[in-house]
Amino acid sequence: MTTTKAHGPTAKMDIRGVSKTFDTRAGAVHALDRCDLAIREGEFVVVVGPSGCGKSTLMMIAAGLEAPSTGQILVDGKPAGPAGPQRTVVFQRFALFPSETVAQNIAFGLRVAGVDRAERARRVTEQLEFMRLSQFRDAYPHELSGGMQQRVAIARALVVRPEILLMDEPFGALDAQTRTVLQEEVARLSREMNYTVMFITHSVEEAVYLGDRVVVMSSRPGRIKKEIAIPRDAGWRRLDIEEASSEPGFIELKREIWALIRTEIVRQ
């Protein structure tokens, strides 16, 4: 992954005119309506919106786990094709393989890709260290706290070196303290490694703290309502989330985004 930000004409991932209609017994559910979103290389894009507006659906389509009704997903200007390690996903419910240890879970993507044993061990160990999981390498998921499980899921998604990391409310199932620690961890990750990330949340604070750009979706059927750039050099980048959230600039952005979401919730 490069450390300089590409501002070229082609985005890393381009979500183009994506709509989604689910046929349910109760009739058609229009979840998404012509969503356009381009994510540049190295950019951390956070999608916020009222609950049920189609955020998860958008991410499933971006991951190739769900087919769009119209529109398409491009990666580096080419149709993205089915799900695969090019776009890995961190789910809210962790989705770790219960029969595998922490190290085996992290090695999964390398193993199915046929990476040889020595290389696999090297990269897993490196990833364990990077996510501060080394002492848990032989534990099973059910022996870990939620926060630790989510670290494993992040490590498992990163070790295959995806072009884009997709995260769907990854901290939604965690308690407040664990969530804060992991938010700071992800901020560190994206600072150090400059990953391209599409991150979904309903926490405005989390969005402003982590994002280079915050995308607000309308209530269902979800459309992209507004995009708000967060300055890369914002003063709070270096602070922890507790301190950051009392910075005037941070509060201002938070208020602005909240106002947008509020009107969408009221509109429902």
Binding site: P85, F91, A157
Partner: peptide
Amino acid sequence: SAALTLGAN
């Protein structure tokens, strides 16, 4: 889903 995104067939 997780296995699919990690590249498993």
